[in-house]
């Protein structure tokens, strides 16, 4: 990847992917949203795959377990892209 994505773009993409996956309006998902309260474990597993495809990154099961909120996921993606 030549230019790293700006954080705002990562956030927009993550929110959109979650809203799309869960079939809810984008406005219903915020950085503070907790995965445990917006979806079940199967949705979350599918979302991790979605993020992997979307940002061409890898999210190990250990890493995924630590992503409790949407902000955690956004930060993780940003960190991973920066280090790649």
């Amino acid at each position: 990847m030549s230019e790293p994505l700006p954080e705002s773009e990562i956030e927009a993409k993550v929110l959109e992917a979650i809203a799309d996956q869960l079939g809810v309006a984008k406005t219903e998902i915020t950085r503070a949203s907790d995965f445990d309260s917006i979806c079940d474990s199967l949705d979350k597993a599918e979302l991790m795959m979605e993020f992997e495809d979307l940002f061409e990154i890898s999210i190990t099961d250990e890493a995924a377990t630590k992503l409790k909120t949407v902000a955690d996921a956004i930060d993780f993606v940003q960190r991973t892209l920066k280090n790649s």
């Binding site: 474990s41 199967l42 597993a45 599918e46 795959m49 992997e52 495809d53």
Partner: peptide
């Protein structure tokens, strides 16, 4: 294998 959807079984 890591991309197989968790919804496949249900």
């Amino acid at each position: 294998p890591r991309r197989v959807s968790p919804f496949v079984v249900p």
